[in-house]
Design a protein around this nucleic acid. Structure first.
Lengths: 110, 110
DNA sequence: TTTAAATATCGTAATATTGCGATAGATTAT
DNA sequence: ATAATCTATCGCAATATTACGATATTTAAA
């Protein structure tokens, strides 16, 4: 059969994987980098910057927003997006915890 | 049209997204957690642990191996896998750099 | 009010991922 | 040599993601 056995895994496992998945496309990394580098957290000058259509960029923005990696504020006719640093800390903490737990259990075979 | 415009993005953007994508499935998080928690870095007692077939688990292991998140050593008839902590550091560094760059450019709208 | 600009969403096509049974390869035990 | 065990890969079906044009929706400007 096909995809999606996510109900069979813990909600922690699903939460972690969903968060990392949101980073799993080059366009979304490009959007994050753009948001880091521009002083004003402009939104769809991305349309002029990325090699993608407006519809596609809007879709990627929604995925980042759903994962709470970015947040948007309506400003007149446009939307101002910026990064949510808390999520970055969450991810760093997750990775750090993985690393530390693994280091405690030293083994031989690799 | 469809998927895959990865050639249009930088190799850095592709490298980062590919690494995070490997974390983007609950089964692969479960595998990583299992490798953290077992003292011996056993491989396919995963088959008894995860709600997936041997073929599917082997496929997920290959993806983790391709992303260099784990490494495997042949031990007789079985394969011993363990985590590659360097990749975890790489990801932490990436996230930390994102965070710091963003903090430098303070802005108003969000 | 009409027009323009920015964004979101719908529908749909192309592609990628996920999952599994069957099968093949390699190593150990009998 | 044969059987048993572990792992990887092939082929295929189910599902998810990616991308875009067309079309709404909302707000600002003319």
């Amino acid at each position: 059969m096909g995809a999606s056995k996510s109900e069979q895994f813990t909600s922690e496992q699903n939460d972690i994987s969903q968060l990392f998945k949101a980073f799993g496309h080059p366009a979304r990394i490009a959007i994050i980098q753009h948001l880091m580098n521009t002083k004003s957290c402009i939104c769809n000058d991305l349309v002029g910057t990325l090699p993608l259509s407006q519809a596609t960029i809007s879709q990627h923005l929604r995925e980042l927003k759903d994962a709470e990696i970015i947040k948007g504020t309506i400003e007149g006719t446009s939307v101002c997006y910026c990064l949510n640093l808390k999520v970055f800390e969450t991810m760093i903490n997750t990775l750090q915890a993985f690393k530390e737990l693994d280091q405690k259990n030293t083994k031989d075979c690799c």
